[in-house]
């Protein structure tokens, strides 16, 4: 009888996942050590998978440059920045002065500036929501956001007025009671979703590793 290879991979995934999951709930030396070995292998494989992803990124942009497709100069910049950072990082290490210099003077300012742009994008998105979708949920969302913003920052009129204190108290009540309840529900819902997705893989219902 010919055994389908996909079944072997499914059994490997299920057994490996079963022992790792067991290690969370059973404190036994053998299971603990087996779990550590399996997680160590997975970490190594994840690092290799990262390099495969980087290779894919490089090959996609390399083909854009070689075929001179639209926007190829940007791809050339990406390849150059990637290779320079990677080679310097591999040779000197990520904690070296050279690598840290690249990080502090190139990566950090761009990342911070992109986050700064997000302030404008968020404000524009908020205005668009109010102008395009005027239902109860949008009004609650925007009203809550305005109240929290008003209650968080300082006012030009100062912080002595009773209205300012009232807004601050309402803000605290919204954040600590209403939003806490909602956030807890969201976190529990996300965790249940993660458990469900994980269990589908552990029970071999979903097999994203191919055949």
């Amino acid at each position: 009888m010919k055994v389908r290879t996909s079944l072997i991979w499914a059994v490997a995934a299920v057994i490996a996942g079963f022992f790792v999951l067991l290690g969370y709930f059973i404190d036994h030396m053998v299971i603990h050590n087996l779990r550590l070995v399996l997680i160590r292998w997975a970490v190594l494989l994840a690092a290799v998978a990262l390099f495969l992803g980087l290779f894919n990124l490089l090959s996609v942009h390399w083909s854009k440059v070689s075929e001179q497709l639209t926007g190829w100069p940007y791809s050339a910049i990406l390849i150059l920045a990637f290779l320079v950072t990677l080679i310097l990082g591999l040779v000197f290490g990520p904690d070296n002065q050279v690598s840290l210099g690249l990080f502090n003077y190139i990566q950090l300012p761009i990342e911070a500036s992109l986050l700064a742009l997000l302030a404008v994008s968020l404000a524009v998105a908020g205005f668009r929501l109010v102008s395009r979708r005027r239902d109860l949920f949008s009004l609650v969302f925007v009203g809550t956001a305005l109240l929290v913003l008003l209650g968080t920052g300082p006012w030009l009129t100062g912080g002595e007025s009773s209205f300012y204190i009232l807004v601050g108290q309402v803000r605290n009540w919204l954040v600590q009671v209403w939003a806490s309840g909602g956030a807890r529900g969201i976190v529990l819902g996300v965790a249940l979703g993660a458990v469900l997705t994980g269990l589908r893989i552990l029970l071999a219902v979903d097999r994203p590793y191919g055949d």
Binding site: L38, I39, W41, A49, T197, Y209
Partner: peptide, 15 residues
């Protein structure tokens, strides 16, 4: 398969 199996177990256990 090993990567996905261990990853799924870590996700379930962590959650």
């Amino acid at each position: 398969a090993l990567l996905v199996g261990v990853g799924a177990a870590v996700v379930v256990g962590g959650a």
